Simulated assay, not measured.
Amino acid sequence: MPSLWMKIAPWALLIVSNVFMTFAWYGHLKNRSMTLLLAIFSGWMIALPEYVLAVTANRMGHEVYSTAQLKTGQEAITLVVFSLFSILYLGETLRWTTVLGFGFIFVGVAIVMFFK
Rank of each mutant, 00 (worst) to 15 (best):
Ser3His: 09
Leu4Arg: 10
Trp5Glu: 13
Trp5His: 11
Met6Val: 06
Met6Pro: 00
Met6Gln: 15
Met6Phe: 13
Lys7Gly: 08
Lys7Glu: 13
Ile8Cys: 05
Ala9Gly: 03
Trp11Ile: 06
Ile15Lys: 01
Val19Cys: 11
Phe20His: 04
Phe20Ser: 04
Met21Gly: 07
Trp25Asn: 10
Tyr26Ser: 10
His28Ile: 00
Leu29Gln: 15
Leu29Ala: 15
Lys30Trp: 06
Asn31Met: 13
Asn31Cys: 07
Arg32Asn: 04
Ser33Val: 09
Thr35Ile: 03
Thr35Ala: 10
Ile40Leu: 09
Phe41Val: 15
Ser42Tyr: 06
Leu48Met: 11
Pro49Cys: 05
Glu50Leu: 00
Glu50Ser: 13
Tyr51Met: 12
Val52Asn: 02
Leu53Met: 07
Leu53Asn: 05
Val55Met: 14
Thr56Phe: 14
Ala57Asp: 07
Asn58Cys: 11
Arg59Asp: 14
Gly61Phe: 12
Val64Arg: 09
Val64Ile: 11
Tyr65Lys: 03
Gln69Asn: 08
Leu70Gln: 08
Lys71Asn: 15
Thr72Phe: 13
Gln74Cys: 05
Glu75Leu: 12
Glu75Gly: 12
Glu75Tyr: 12
Ala76Gln: 12
Ala76Thr: 13
Thr78Cys: 03
Leu79Thr: 06
Leu79Phe: 13
Val80Ala: 06
Ser83Gly: 08
Ser83Lys: 03
Leu84Cys: 14
Leu84Asp: 02
Phe85Thr: 01
Phe85Tyr: 05
Ile87Lys: 00
Ile87Ser: 01
Leu88Glu: 08
Tyr89Ala: 02
Leu90Tyr: 02
Leu90Phe: 01
Glu92Met: 04
Glu92Val: 00
Thr93Pro: 00
Thr93Ser: 09
Thr97Asp: 10
Val99Met: 10
Gly101Asp: 02
Ile105Val: 15
Ala110Met: 09
Ala110Phe: 12
Ala110Cys: 08
Ile111Lys: 12
Met113Ser: 01
Met113Arg: 03
Phe114Ser: 09
